[in-house]
Simulated scan of single mutants.
Amino acid sequence: MAGHTNGVNGVAGSRVLKPGIYAPIPTFFVPDTEDLDLESFAAHVVRLAKANVRPLIAGSMGEGIHLTHSERAVLIKTARKALDDAGLPDVPVIAGTGTGSTRETIELCHEAAAAGADYVIVITSGYFAGALTRDALKAYFVEVAEKSSLPVIVYNYPGASGGIDLDSDLITELAEQCPNLCGVKLTCGNVGKLTRICATVSEQSFVDLYPRKNPNAPFLVLGGFADFIVPSAFANGHGAIIGLANVAPYTCARLFELSAAALSDRAVLAEAQRLQGIVARGDFTIAKASISGTKFLLEKLYGYGGLPRKPLPPIKSEAAQALWEHQHVRDLVQIERELSGKL
């Protein structure tokens, strides 16, 4: 089946942005050369999509900061073709496009659209963090949203943005004033902030008063860690974008499904809480091993993963073995194998 074609501003033919679990897909590299390993990348995108986990390309886990403009475009095109060829043409592709300057960020947004992305996610520019006032930060996202040819997700990640942490008031203001914004990812891990934002944007009054430019792109509030998916659901959040979904896609998707179902059926809440505990412990342990640890686990589980791009170092062998043998990881792998039918 042929892939859809994005139209002006991503409206015509764009795929629907839905609540759920999204994974920042790692970028895999050929050993020695560090060229893109597109075969492993395509296989991984499809593997996760079949587990109901949607892809985010060239994000933090994808080492977007280590990629050239042309490599980003190749990855987007590869993901789109892989999904279409696998009979998954309705799965959207989100691309990371945030960079140092407003100008280059907008350029990357246009390039992502041309390559076949449906949405973009833009991290706060943090190199000159000390000079960026609240007004400057707001102006950055307003201009990017106005000029991007695709709907934009705000990416709040203080650890990769010079410590800049957008507050709930600013994010809510941006959501109200920028109809081309379609969500926020909170890798600050602040559940209170998520609750405050959802108290505005998850209400029907917000939908009525502040319609989106693209009707297929509602404003979603997404967590950036896997350890508060259940609390997020009960705060009227919309899921998460999480690196853990690369390692345990069926588990993370099931946890979201149970969390959403528990809102109307308390009989499934206990199972959602049990699964949340396994996921939270696994996420806490694996996140400390960063990108190299995730790639090591993918190598162990699926036969591909490899190394990050230099200067990011690989995980040390002792640390890798300890990670694999850690009880939190073993518990997560066990439940993933059960849910994926591997046992």
Rank of each mutant, 00 (worst) to 15 (best):
116 G>Q: 05
170 L>A: 06
173 E>W: 10
143 E>W: 01
194 L>T: 03
189 G>L: 07
147 K>A: 12
111 E>D: 14
183 G>R: 03
107 E>M: 10
207 V>T: 15
132 L>W: 09
133 T>K: 07
142 V>K: 11
203 E>F: 03
125 S>A: 15
185 K>E: 04
117 A>V: 06
129 A>E: 02
180 N>W: 05
192 G>Y: 10
121 I>D: 01
183 G>A: 09
137 L>Y: 03
143 E>D: 14
198 C>N: 13
107 E>Q: 13
113 A>C: 13
155 Y>E: 04
145 A>E: 08
177 Q>D: 14
135 D>N: 10
106 I>P: 08
157 Y>K: 04
136 A>M: 11
110 H>I: 09
174 L>Q: 06
193 K>P: 09
118 D>Y: 09
175 A>W: 03
149 S>Y: 01
149 S>V: 12
142 V>W: 00
188 C>I: 00
197 I>T: 10
179 P>R: 10
163 G>Y: 08
159 G>E: 11
123 I>Y: 01
162 G>W: 01
149 S>F: 00
134 R>A: 15
144 V>Q: 03
122 V>W: 05
164 I>M: 08
203 E>K: 15
110 H>P: 00
116 G>Y: 00
200 T>C: 12
168 S>M: 02
160 A>F: 14
107 E>F: 11
111 E>M: 14
170 L>M: 15
206 F>P: 01
132 L>A: 15
113 A>G: 13
206 F>S: 07
